[in-house]
């Protein structure tokens, strides 16, 4: 299937010589939620802004649904909705008016029914006639999403959509994003909350120092890069790990009461059965055990540190 966004060899050098993007190539599939992760200054926002037409590229090409973002800018921009990282709002306007304005600006005829639907889906309906300056930060964030959705975009860019938003509102927004995906909208999400990408994204791209260092399906990424560990709470604490258990590279906690074993779920044999047998042979008893898997955040930090 043809990607809905295709980026090839994209570079951006700002006046002053700072190179924000270095030969970035990336395809976004139609209908997916793509999580673009990267530390501050990695080039996420520059990449989004180029696709949306806010920043001009230096070299390379970007197509949206087969249309070039420069030559066919009307076609590409009318398909895109953008929720920016900052909270720029028309202070003296109302949510209803700004959503209606956005719809018109993107070339769509008036449709009060659609605006009503969008405002209701974002719990803004009750606030539709209040001045935006009177709304909370979270509500302003919703207004920005409402503006982006007012013209029924096929692609939605969410640049740090839940920054500064409380937990409840974050959950609401995740729900909105999921329902958008169900309706066929392609969502590109940048976030500092890796948990957000872990919850929502189908695929994840990691960008650092202006370069894409990895693009992978989230589940596969977590399988391949993620590690699992087995933690045993010992009945009798140990001073050192017995030499006959050296093959398992066990970690003994400072207290000597906890043994940790790292294993790889991709391998045919995790070694857990053998380890438990070896513990029994060594006369080491335990009264509890637990397993845990490394989070996307740990994988992300590992990748970025490795690249640095």
């Amino acid at each position: 299937m043809q990607p809905i966004i295709s980026i090839k060899g994209l570079t951006k050098t700002y006046e002053g010589g700072f190179q924000a993007l270095k030969e970035v190539s990336l395809d976004i599939n139609r209908g997916e939620i793509f999580g673009l992760l990267g530390p501050n200054g990695a080039g996420k926002t520059t990449l989004i802004n180029i696709v949306c037409g806010i920043v001009t590229k230096t070299t390379g090409s970007v197509t949206v649904d087969g249309f070039d973002i420069v030559d066919d800018y009307r076609q590409t921009r009318s398909r895109i909705g953008l929720v920016p990282q900052e909270l720029p709002t028309e202070t003296f306007e109302t949510p209803w008016n700004v959503a209606r304005f956005s719809r018109g600006l993107f070339g769509k005829p008036e449709n009060p029914g659609h605006i009503e639907k969008v405002l209701k889906s974002l719990s803004l309906w009750e606030k539709r006639n209040e001045k935006i300056m009177m709304l909370s930060g979270g509500m302003k964030r919703r207004v920005l999403i409402a503006k982006a959705l007012a013209h029924e975009p096929e692609i939605l860019f969410l640049d740090e959509p839940t920054a500064g938003v409380d937990v409840e509102l974050r959950q609401d927004m995740w729900s909105v994003v999921r329902s958008l995906r169900e309706s066929g909208v392609t969502v590109i999400l940048t976030t500092h909350y890796i948990e957000e990408a872990e919850q929502l994204a189908d695929r994840v791209g990691v960008i650092n120092h202006g370069k894409i260092i990895l693009v992978e399906e989230k589940n596969r990424l977590m399988r391949e890069f993620g590690k699992k560990q087995l933690v045993l709470q010992l009945t009798d604490c140990l001073a050192v790990v017995p030499p006959e258990l050296d093959d398992y590279e066990l970690e003994l906690s400072e207290s000597g009461c906890e043994l940790t074993y790292h294993y790889d779920t991709k391998q045919d044999h995790t070694g857990i059965t053998a380890l438990l047998a070896a513990l029994r042979t060594a006369g080491i008893k335990f009264n509890d055990l637990s397993t845990s898997q490394s989070s996307l955040e740990e994988i992300f930090v590992g990748l970025v540190n490795q690249e640095a």
Partner: peptide, 13 residues
């Protein structure tokens, strides 16, 4: 000044 110019720049106009 407020930053809302982003919308104008990203619109198909």
């Amino acid at each position: 000044f407020t930053g809302t110019i982003f919308e104008l720049l990203s619109a198909p106009i």
